[in-house]
Amino acid sequence: MRGQANPAPDKLPQFSRAASRDPGSARQASRLNRLREAFTPSHPIAQAQRFAGRRGLLEQLIHLIEDQQLHVVLYGDRGIGKTSLLRIVSNLARDAEYHVSYASCGSDTSFDSLFRQFAREIPLLFHKDYAPTHPEVEAGGTLATLIGDKPLTVADVTAVLEKVQGTRILLIIDEFDRVASARMREQIAEVIKNLSDRGSSIQFLIAGVASNLTALVAHIPSIRRNLIGVPVAPLDRRETAQVIEAGSRQSGLPFAPEAVSDITDLSRGLPYLAQLLGLHASFHAARRGGEAVNREDVVAAAAQAEEEIGLRLSDRILRAIDSAAERSGWPALRSIAERGMIGHGRLLANDVAGLDPTSKDALLEAESDAEGESWHFREEAAIPFVWLRASRAGQR
């Protein structure tokens, strides 16, 4: 109609940094920023004050490294908290005056590139052939000055590292499962054996996604007495509650006891999932103006987490999950996902017995190792996705 003003278009969503310029929105923006810092599912925890649970495992790792002077391999499923553990151990070791070098592997990481990185980070001061007043030491030289341009061999690395003295050195290798080269795994094992035989002050702490020790490190028999595997199990209920309580303290937003219980049930001891649900539940409560997180916030968080995790899955797997639910039912899928969550992703014959052959072939891959035949989901994110969807389906 002539003379009638056009309706104002809806205001676009804003980043909270922009919204905080409005004095009326500043308090809410500040509250949301605290929530983002309190729950961090997308990256590991490195600050001791934010780390919760795992106290017994931390004590075990410190004992193995410090008292028994063993090399340690941490293994477990993705999202179980291995990298957070490594970060905390790194900080605690540095506080105890260990020299710590940290490397994260990729598919293209080689033996040569890994140990060149470590050599660049270890001061030449700790090499027994160099006095503190040596010009290269005073200039801040590192062990990298002792290695040439040719690709490093096990003998080269051993020759340099065995002469380190005057300090304890902890070499941390994260995401070791991403190393594609079987030969590199053998070389790491050989270096560990050589340094152990020579009584070196250097220790390794290695972590990766695996269901057992032998899946990560080769030549186990030759270094059995020098190396120990430590599985990272799911959090227990008390530890999961501690994770939520730690986030609640930092954010200043309390959780109702039943909300903590619901997140504990849904996360099944997976720190990543507990953090994700805690984050989404907190945001839902804050945006509705709630003074505490309640059960309805957790229900909304579970739906949002399911949708978010589903974005990481291929269309093929999503269709396979829906087809499997039609054939075998959500309860069967829920049971399989639960076994995968508490079994480092490894499923045994009894675990998948309720799945029809077509669905089994579409969703799972078989593998054989020293422990026998087992199965795992073709895509890792399928485990928490199936668990959340099946759990929500059971509530409807």
Rank of each mutant, 00 (worst) to 15 (best):
P9G: 09
K11H: 12
R17D: 14
R17M: 10
A19E: 12
S20Q: 08
G24D: 15
R27N: 08
Q28S: 04
Q28R: 12
Q28F: 02
S30D: 15
N33G: 14
R34V: 05
E37A: 15
A38D: 10
A38Y: 08
A38L: 05
F39C: 11
S42K: 11
S42D: 15
P44S: 11
Q49L: 08
L57C: 08
L57F: 03
E59H: 15
Q60D: 13
L61F: 07
I62P: 00
V72A: 13
V73C: 12
Y75R: 01
D77W: 08
G79F: 11
G79W: 06
R94V: 09
A96K: 15
E97Y: 11
R120V: 02
H127W: 06
P132A: 09
H134T: 12
T145D: 11
L146Q: 09
A155H: 13
D156T: 07
V160Q: 01
L161F: 15
L161D: 02
L170N: 08
D177Q: 03
V179L: 13
A182H: 13
A189Q: 09
A189N: 11
D197C: 04
D197I: 09
I202T: 05
A207R: 04
G208P: 04
L213S: 03
L216Y: 03
V217N: 02
A218Q: 07
A218K: 14
I220T: 06
S222C: 02
R224A: 13
R224M: 07
R225I: 02
I228Q: 13
V230Y: 01
V232Y: 03
R238G: 15
E239K: 08
V243H: 05
G247V: 09
P254D: 10
P257N: 07
V260N: 10
D265R: 15
L270E: 13
A274W: 05
L277Q: 01
R288Y: 00
G289V: 10
G289N: 09
A292G: 02
E296P: 03
A301S: 01
A301T: 03
A303S: 12
E306F: 03
G310I: 07
L313D: 07
S314G: 08
R319H: 03
R319E: 10
D322H: 03
A325L: 01
A325Q: 00
A325V: 00
P331V: 06
L333M: 04
L333K: 04
S335I: 02
H344T: 08
G345H: 01
A349G: 07
N350H: 10
A353N: 06
P357D: 01
P357L: 00
T358F: 04
S359R: 04
A362N: 11
E365P: 01
F377D: 06
E379P: 04
E380T: 13
A382M: 14
I383Q: 02
V386E: 01
Q395H: 05
